[in-house]
Write a protein that binds this DNA or RNA. Structure first.
Lengths: 236, 236
DNA sequence: GCATTTTTTATACATACGTACAAATAAATA
DNA sequence: TATTTATTTGTACGTATGTATAAAAAATGC
């Protein structure tokens, strides 16, 4: 029995609802099907990676036949991109909104480092900890994607623009700091954010804790920790 | 043409040397074969992930027939573990050595935060930047493994013990800080370390730089940044 | 010098994969 | 009511996968 087969026998959180009959569904039922496929793909890609999750697994987890996935999303790569894009758009919206508000409050002055760190990281960690299972799967998927060649292009497409805006504000608030250092600090912050939400169990093992520390607690630590890190970059 | 097939046509750094004949090679030639297989597997696992790299690809990259891989390493999972283990042992040795020296220098007193950060991170970043191609591939592989379920057990097996020793020293140096915060800081440090060596090209894109920043420069920034982060944890 | 061991090649097998095609069915449209 | 469109099912195809078996060939050991 291969590892993939072992994994395939795992229960998935996406309940198959009902076996459905062929035929055009009434109303926008197809949108619902698309969401179900994306949910199932999100979980499987997060758990097993792009190559480890098959289209068959996705279809089965969504309670559909194989070809329905291809019908709605085309080839596998497009399905993967659709999974990432769905919540990336939401995430980017939240971050841009927070940035706009912070800019307004600052009224022309530089935004504080702590505020920038908080505003960038908070939507992700809040979604991953308070959101539904889909958000948790999405967070795990993004963590897995972070250092992989496959993820690079997708992340660039969906997240780089907003990242650059935050970096510009960080550099403004850290006048005198080497801009490259600020980028490194930003990268460190993102890496820590993804690590917190990955739920690998490593922090528990390293601290001897029995249960997982609430991501909100780690979030507060992350904000303090990385704010201090950024501030030290101004000291040449 | 599938994506995997496109990738398969890429040139690999492991040159096939010569087609060899069957039969027992003289001397410890088999050790050399094992190293070649590990080198090829290291690169392919780093580039394409566990499921994305096939045993056939590994064998071809090493200039061998398919079954030679299975002969030397058994099933695929054992090959993967052997790839990780080979350099993990070296890395762990360097870190423990550095820690022992630092303890001796401190002579019973707590080791400085900056020293601990430097000693833990330095072997990895130095190997990944000054070492041969194998070390670069290994660093990329570890980054890819960091947030994946598959990597969790392997990392635990090879890296947790040393990590706990460093964390204990960090907690000693940060008397008064919440031990859980220290673990979060350590996790952040490791995540940043892996991100620097992943060579995804994202820092270049975010900073507008044409070429990659030398990892040594990022290393110095990481040390400063994370030392400041740890120090702020003592302020309740 | 002959038998044994080690390592490699060559081939085979059952399964899983991504994708495509044809048919069926129900809603929407006219 | 007749036609079209949208969506799902069922099946099929060629290829790739992990693993196993059999054979061959070179070095070693007695």
């Amino acid at each position: 029995m291969t590892m993939r087969q072992q994994l395939s026998s795992l229960k998935l959180g996406v309940e198959p609802d009902l076996p459905r009959k062929p035929g055009r569904p009434k109303g926008g039922r197809s949108d619902q099907t698309r969401e179900r496929i994306l949910d199932a793909a999100e979980q499987l890609f997060a758990d097993r990676g792009y190559d480890g999750a098959s289209i068959r697994d996705v279809a089965a987890a969504a309670g559909l036949q194989i070809h329905s996935v291809g019908y709605h999303f085309g080839p596998k790569e497009q399905l993967f991109d659709a999974v990432v894009a769905r919540r990336a758009d939401i995430m980017t919206g939240l971050r841009r909104e927070a940035l706009a508000e912070a800019r307004q409050r600052a009224g022309g002055a530089a935004i504080s480092i702590m505020q920038l760190v908080r505003d960038y990281v908070s939507p992700f960690i809040q979604s991953a900890s308070h959101g539904d299972e889909g958000w948790r799967n999405y967070a795990a998927l993004m963590g897995r994607l972070a250092n992989s060649p496959l993820g690079t292009g997708i992340i660039a497409r969906h997240y780089d623009q907003t990242a650059r805006e935050y970096i510009a504000e960080l550099q403004r608030a850290l006048a005198g700091a080497d801009p490259e250092d600020v980028v490194d600090g930003f990268s460190a912050m993102v890496a820590a954010m993804l690590g917190i939400c990955a739920a690998t169990g490593r922090p528990e093992r390293l601290s001897g804790r029995a249960s997982r520390r609430p991501p909100e607690d780690s979030f507060e630590t992350l904000v303090r920790f990385h704010t201090a890190g950024f501030l030290t970059l101004t000291i040449a």
